[in-house]
């Protein structure tokens, strides 16, 4: 059983490291309420939301900024990743 546990934790290592960037989403309801607004701004840019990941959430005063990592994929090509930041009090 111990070897199964070790393998499971090894397979989970990448995911566990990624959880830290999402902690604000899990524990702050106000931040969670702004996520869809931020995602809508990305839609207005014409981006495919299927290719996108949150990498950072920052709260400063009354403003919440989300940094997204966008990667477009087509059949032959994976485009370079793009970091896009938008904040709640932007126009």
């Amino acid at each position: 059983m111990f070897i199964f546990l070790c393998i499971s934790l090894l397979l989970s290592s990448t995911s566990i490291m990624g959880i830290s960037r999402l902690i604000p989403l899990f524990f702050n309801s106000e931040i969670r309420s702004h996520v869809s607004e931020s995602a809508d701004k990305l839609r207005l840019m014409g981006l495919w939301l299927i290719n996108i990941d949150i990498v950072k959430v920052e709260s400063k005063d009354l403003d919440t900024c989300f940094t997204w990592e966008y990667e477009y994929r087509s059949k032959e090509k994976v485009y370079p990743k793009e970091l896009i930041t938008n904040c709640t009090n932007e126009n």
Binding site: L5, S8, L11, S12, S15, I16, I19, L22, D53
Partner: peptide, 22 residues
């Protein structure tokens, strides 16, 4: 033993789901 094996096998997907809000 079988239950433990199955529960341990669920760990990677558990953490994957937690780390992927999609």
């Amino acid at each position: 033993e079988i239950v433990l094996t199955l529960l341990l096998s669920l760990i990677p997907t558990f953490f994957y789901i937690l780390s992927n809000p999609g």
